[in-house]
């Protein structure tokens, strides 16, 4: 019984659930981003996010904006791929769906690799979790975002496997992909916000 059987609004309950969960997630990231903003102008000790001269001494900034722009582009493209995968699913085009799903996954993983690289680079430059407020709030915020991407990748991989195993497009598969797509786009939008605030806003 359950879900499909009954829906006053016509919206599938599972999709509704995803929407409301994302509303909740907004505040989750809202709190992380607020924390970051509160400490943004108050970083007592190096390393600093951007080039900075303190007491006549020059400190090299950590952020590599061109590189992160690339990874942001990668994540954006994954959203495009996701749209196409959903399109394929809705039009019963199994091949198209699988192909774009795979691309989404690959792009998602690529984004995560960029992030791993960035984290390792920062660590190498001496920015640990407890080095300063920038480190703590940056790692916590982008870390939780990364976990979201990671969970998204796992969901997409299981969907992809599911569709291989069955090799057909049950009504549910398309639906699941659409819902997963909602999640994926949300995580993507959050990144755009983070990217703007961390990398593009002046310090």
């Amino acid at each position: 019984m359950s879900q499909e059987a009954h829906s006053v609004t016509g919206i599938d309950s599972r999709k509704l659930l995803m929407w409301i969960f994302l509303a909740s997630d907004c505040l989750f990231f809202g709190a992380l981003i607020s924390t970051y903003l509160i400490f943004k102008d108050n970083i007592p000790n190096p390393p600093y996010p951007t080039d900075r001269i303190v007491n006549g001494e020059f400190f090299h900034g950590l952020l590599n904006i061109p590189l992160t722009s690339v990874s942001t582009f990668v994540l954006l493209m994954s959203s495009v791929a996701m749209v196409l995968a959903v399109y394929g699913a809705q039009n019963n085009n199994l091949k198209m769906m699988k192909g774009w799903l795979l691309s989404t996954i690959v792009l998602g993983i690529a984004f995560l690799l960029f992030q791993v690289y960035e984290f390792r680079h920062f660590l190498h430059e001496g920015l640990g979790l407890s080095t300063n407020q920038f480190g703590a709030s940056f790692y916590l915020m982008t870390g939780f975002h990364g976990v979201h991407v990671g969970i998204g990748v796992i969901i997409l991989i299981s969907l992809l496997f599911g569709s291989f195993r069955r090799n057909s497009l049950g009504s549910d598969t398309g639906f699941h992909i659409e819902t997963a797509g909602l999640y994926w786009h949300f995580v993507d939008i959050v990144w755009i916000v983070i990217f703007t605030l961390v990398y593009l806003m002046p310090y």
């Binding site: 909740s24 709190a31 916590l140």
Partner: peptide, 14 residues
């Protein structure tokens, strides 16, 4: 609850 709990969660994580 949906809109307030995530804020507490972040505080607890921190």
């Amino acid at each position: 609850l949906i809109l307030s709990l995530p804020v507490l969660t972040i505080g607890l994580v921190q």
